[in-house]
Nucleic acid binder design. Structure first.
Lengths: 324, 324
DNA sequence: CTGAAAGCGCTAACAA
DNA sequence: TTGTTAGCGCTTTCAG
């Protein structure tokens, strides 16, 4: 890797001049500019980003903290963030927090030590007080915190009501809910949406609620148990992975889906089209969420005006085969 | 963020001394060491990694280039790499190449500009000549290149023979193959394994081979067509995603799986357990592959001796419900 | 329009 | 055992 000094020498100018043509700031003679550009070409010079970062206190890098990239909801989100950041010439450091506040904090420190220009957080173990002294632009994605940071979330509450109501309209009256971990805000909101809808339908019964922890295996076990002990004709699962688990349980018990039991998931991850029957689900604009968050972060970093701080994206029902 | 100078001032010593206690090199008085440590504590000092990188020409960061994180094979691989790198205090920059040589090259340049200490490549668009002047430690993962770089791959050829032979032993005689994109080395090897096994079984017939491009939808369409035009009693799909597509096609045509048609996939991604029937598949130790590659890279970076340069990990057959 | 020089925060000789 | 100094490669005043 050639250095700027070498380019300068070859072009017969000072490093300051090279820097000027590189960053297109300051005045520089047409002639010299051409010579410098040639030198850059022949040496295949690429500026050293580390040196640049040290001076600028900014690294054209952002941190992206997700709970776990192997959770099928996140790959698309991560991809979207990477795509957008790539357009703006930022690089992304990926961090898996496993929903642990400690790991999140640790990563935030590590990222700050590297002069990241911003952080996208997909997590909510940290309170906003703990984040208050972070002094790096932050955008919160998928997991709302409070109103102190720009955020991009989908309308979990509405989606849950929509799902529950759809099952009702399909004729279900004993509608169970398999809930995700309630310390995860969106799981809580989905539960609330379900609860409110059931109440307004006059169908609320707390024994219809089960814990699935966003895991297929746990959801399957919980569903097995629920289905054998209760009369249930519809299930609203807190995510698609749990819906797949519920589907398995139903099939194992010899129930027909959707005839005997309707199932609806949440997220619309690729898996939802791969099961048989395919899953009816609430679709979140996952890619858009990531892309919007990334754009928001870039604007914050560059100090550009932000028209809207909090984005609540609409969700929609995708009818497939697991409901009538 | 406090700087070293501030720590030095507070402790009443020179920055050199602070550096010494920080890096535990050189001699330093017990007393002063204590004072320095206190100062570090009270200021909550964290060394500036960028400055450190500039001097050391090393950033405790590695680049991980994958084709596409949304392809369900990669999240687990990425997770493994991140986990291991995290243990050794390295940070990972994620790059999606979409199998494009240009993007790969571009990312490699960007990574080098940032003084990454190493790169893990999960791709094979670049020839080893193009990579020869890279002068950064590289480990090749999942997609073998040639023998110039350390590599970690699973035994694709054996896996394919195993899958094909298993279908044969289950009584299948007209065994089709849905192949992945042949410019992807592992897809090619799986095809070769299938071909060789079919030949040695005396069953080889080139009209039994279809293109699925590692995509569910394409595999579904190809299977539909194949199934209506041909007599086929077994399908070996180049990956699980395509196996899921084949399964859908079969079900849509009213074929029973595995009774009328046996299907076997490849990869053993989580999806394989979510379909009904669950997919019999060839299991690759995905997490291990990532972890071994990461360990290999760390050893290369730290100049430690490497006992084995090329790792070909064994695969195994996982019997589930899509075969008899 | 251009160059010299200082400095981003850290590390590693070299002296003391 | 400690401080001084130079320098990693770049950017930006400040003089010319």
């Amino acid at each position: 890797m050639a250095t700027m000094r070498e380019v300068a020498k070859l072009a017969g100018v000072s490093v300051a001049t090279v820097s000027r043509v590189l960053n297109q700031n300051g005045y520089v003679n047409q002639e010299t500019e051409k010579r410098v550009k040639e030198a850059i070409q022949t040496l295949n010079y690429k500026p050293n980003e580390v040196a640049r970062s040290l001076y600028k206190k900014s690294s054209r890098t952002i941190g992206l903290i997700v709970p776990d990239i192997s959770n099928p909801f996140f790959p698309e989100l991560v991809r979207a963030v990477e795509d957008v950041m790539n357009i703006y010439d930022y690089t992304v450091i990926l961090c898996n927090s496993d929903e642990k506040g400690d790991k999140e904090k640790e990563y935030i420190d590590i990222l700050k030590q590297r002069y990241v220009d911003g952080i996208i957080l997909t997590t909510n173990q940290l309170t906003s007080e703990e984040l208050s002294d972070i002094n790096v632009p932050v955008v919160v994605l998928d997991r709302p915190l409070d109103h102190s940071f720009p955020s991009v979330v989908a309308n979990n509450y509405e989606g849950a009501r929509m799902a529950t109501n759809y099952l009702y309209k399909q004729g279900c009256r004993r509608i169970a809910h398999i809930q995700g971990p309630l310390h995860v805000v969106n799981a809580l909101e989905r539960f609330r949406g379900y609860q409110d809808e059931m109440k307004s339908l006059g169908l609320w019964d707390e024994t219809l609620v089960f814990i699935g922890n966003y895991q297929m295996s746990e959801a399957k076990i919980a569903t097995m148990e629920a289905l054998t002990n209760q009369k249930i004709d519809g299930i609203f699962a807190g995510n698609d992975v749990m819906a797949a688990g519920a589907l398995k349980a139903a099939q194992q018990l010899g129930l027909r889906v959707p005839e005997d039991l309707a199932i609806i998931g949440y997220d619309n991850i690729p898996l939802a089209e791969m099961t048989t029957p395919e899953l009816t689900t609430i679709s979140q604009p996952i890619y858009d969420m990531g892309a919007i968050a990334a754009r928001l972060l870039v604007k914050k970093i560059e100090g550009k005006p932000i028209d809207q701080i909090h984005h609540v994206l609409p969700v929609k029902l995708v009818r497939r085969e697991s409901t009538r």
